[in-house]
Design a protein around this nucleic acid. Structure first.
Lengths: 206, 206
DNA sequence: TAGATTGTTAATCGATTAACAATC
DNA sequence: TAGATTGTTAATCGATTAACAATC
């Protein structure tokens, strides 16, 4: 019998739980409870327990959850008990800043290559990488079997580059361009657009 | 009679609609329909109409929506029919990249000042700004009556800086640090954490 | 007019919460 | 043991969709 599929909204909360647990670990904590976790995150304890129960029984009545154990389980569930190789497309200010950011590796992601189409940038160094020519993006990403990409190109290029990524076999795109991407159903897209986030808050301001 | 409050999930979609409409405007389009907009965004036409109906009647039967008119209404609703002055906290790679990014102004946001606590950075130029000393952040932001901030500091500083922002009167914080912030109920926070977004997608990958 | 599309209602669907037996 | 907290069920709450009268 096919297991009932997990709601995407639940999947979306798991990385938040994981991040909080890893934070607790760094604080030297060993055990937590759904109530404590919920208070930190502004989520009800019942919801956390319900979400986790979709995947198994990870806690103990009376004591709660062993943080390390639960974090390990969440890493497995989210498939970040490994390191995903990531292609970065766009070596502008933002792309370079993200490439320098050291925090990805410990969360399961390793930037492997950076592309740009600007001849001025191709061949220059960004951290340990030499910026590659976008013209070769499709062939190289396909050859490397890379499935995850960060798209940090100007809005006008986002859709055509996304299409190349899809053709290269990429299945997950983190899109920093402020445009909606049209991709096949089996390709996942997440958007990061600061203006959109800000506008969501100004609604509540005077 | 107090109007029924609008669900936050609806508010969250309005900036997406607005962005798509502004994109259509740049394409030279004049009129659209809930169906067309929905197809572009992967949202049902019924939902778009329902969302908009919370705020008024903006369309015409038989013809749809005048794009410019609807975009203007959404800007009003979201309170981005003005320009919000924004304080940027953190002049690292990411903060500087964001400060250089020219796309905020047309979406309703104007970065006004940039802070850092690093003596090496204080006084240096980022775009048109001179990096200010974080020590003066509270007093200056309060004096300027700035309500919106982008928090781009290392994780360990995010909570204490957020507390200063709150004390300075900031009501909306866009948080780039990968930690949950604890703030009063009348302060809005949105999180941007690329690893979290990526982890949400790797769940679906093999 | 005929065709198209809105705004809205009612029905459906899904998510969250409350409550508690089980049990550490 | 007594106290605490899980995992789960059932009830509640809220969001989405389908359908259609109104009307441009």
């Amino acid at each position: 019998m096919q297991a009932k599929s997990i709601p995407d909204i639940v999947i979306g909360r798991l990385p938040i739980y994981l991040r909080a647990l890893q934070h607790m670990l760094r604080e030297g904590r060993q055990v937590t409870s759904s109530q404590e976790l919920g208070e930190r995150l502004g989520i009800s304890a019942a919801q956390i327990r319900k979400d986790l129960s979709q995947f198994g029984e990870f806690g103990k009545q009376g004591t709660g959850y062993t943080i390390k154990f639960l974090a390990d389980r969440l890493q497995e569930i989210l498939h970040v008990d490994r390191v995903w190789r990531v292609a970065m497309i766009g070596a502008g200010d933002l792309g370079r800043a993200l490439a320098h950011y050291g925090g990805f590796a410990e969360r399961g992601f390793q930037i492997e290559m950076i592309y740009d189409s600007d001849p001025e940038k191709i061949g220059t160094k960004v951290g340990n990488f030499v910026v590659r020519d976008s013209a070769n993006l499709l062939a190289e990403i396909k050859a490397e079997s890379i499935q995850v990409a960060m798209l940090v190109v100007p809005a006008a290029f986002a859709q055509p580059v996304a299409e190349q990524l899809v053709e290269a076999g990429v299945k997950a795109i983190l899109n920093y361009a402020p445009v909606n991407l049209s991709v096949p159903a089996d390709v996942h897209v997440q958007h990061i657009d600061p203006s959109t986030h800000l506008q969501r808050m100004t609604y509540y301001l005077e």
